[in-house]
Design a protein around this nucleic acid. Structure first.
Lengths: 205, 205
DNA sequence: GCACGACATGAACGAACGTTCTTACTTCGC
DNA sequence: GCGAAGTAAGAACGTTCGTTCATGTCGTGC
């Protein structure tokens, strides 16, 4: 069985909402927010143009809703990944990176939307979504600070290390191909090691 | 004196070409390729809409020309940075990263265009520009391979390390603010260390 | 001083866009 | 069985877009 990326948004209780959101993610991710039209989204969702406005009041609110679903799923994965890890910073960071990489691979286009299309949100939606993204970054920063205190991470630049790691991992969405040479697991392994090395922490073997 | 980012494109010999290219970089970088109009570019360049077509045959060819200037400058900086370094891989990589960070800080919006708007190019322009970008990446890969052979870089993942480093450095364009807490030099220093650490190479001190 | 190419402009074109309007059909509590 | 809310679709709106066209100016080689 091929575990191709399942749709990000599952049924929401409203008839076509999930289909619209998933079509929006696909359209915005492949053609960009301004390059994709509401007609594209409607076609992808298998419904009519005007019906989109029974679910979302505007194109940018639709983008905001789609991004919120993506961010929630990402934050959830990272948190549960960290919770299932041990207490020491290195293994917590390792699981956080693995969870993040997993999300990027499973929902590649959603990740592309999250990173590339933020600027097209209404100002209020943007600030509320930046808060969400910062929450993920803060999780990494907490782990790094913990590791620096414990002495396992010896980088002098704890503040910006999280940003560097998240940038590198997020960028995977721009080039990863499921039929490429790296499996999901190998990729996660690589980037977990990159992160630990960048933090000047302990490496396996 | 404030060393704000000078224009990327200097005089080209044609009357308004440089102004148009710089206006295009600014417009495409701040509003996105599809979000910025040719009228925006004309206004930014201080000329008329129709005059743009005396210089570039279409909007996407204008984007291609602007990106070519950006890539050329980036490649030039990295190459001269590497040439001025010593012979050992760590110091060569260090200078390559410093040059790259310098470009990102000096031409932040041009870097944003280069990374975010590639997909809007005509297919032939895109392939020729990806070749350009790959040339920069190849320079990093060569240094990393050299370091791995010499034994100074002990990462087992030489192939993808370059991509991880370049992703993190390129992403600086998305958040750096000249009036922030980090100077250009401090930032370059941090990322040079991040890169060396990620490669599991020798660190200063 | 004239012809020509480079440069410049305002007006206009057809197409595509986000959004709204009007009109239906379905579902379901009561 | 009825009204209200939710869902659906087609037609149309005003606007903006990339591009073209007709026309005009400027500088420069001959």
């Amino acid at each position: 069985m091929n575990t191709r990326s399942a749709a990000l948004v599952a049924d929401t209780g409203r008839r076509n909402e999930a289909a619209i959101l998933n079509a929006a993610i696909h359209a915005f991710g492949t053609k960009g927010f301004n390059g994709a039209s509401m007609r594209d989204v409607a076609r992808g969702a298998g419904t009519s143009l005007s019906n989109l406005y029974n679910y979302f009041p505007s194109k940018s609110k639709l983008l905001a809703a789609a991004m919120r679903h993506a961010n929630d799923e990402l934050l959830l994965r990272v948190h549960t990944g960290v919770e299932q890890a041990g207490d020491d910073a290195p293994s917590r960071l390792r699981e956080a990176v693995r969870a993040y990489v997993g999300f990027v691979v499973d929902h590649q286009v959603a990740m592309l939307v999250s990173t590339n299309e933020v600027r097209y949100l209404d100002p209020d939606d943007r600030t509320s979504l930046v808060v969400d993204r910062d929450a993920t970054e803060a999780t990494f920063e907490r782990i790094i600070t913990q590791g620096a205190t414990e002495g396992s991470f010896r980088t002098p630049y704890t503040d910006d290390a999280a940003r560097a790691i998240l940038s590198a991992v997020g960028a995977i969405a721009g080039w990863y191909r499921a039929d490429g040479p790296l499996s999901r697991g190998q990729l996660a392994e690589q980037y977990a090691r990159f992160a630990l090395a960048l933090l000047e922490g302990p490496l396996p073997q």
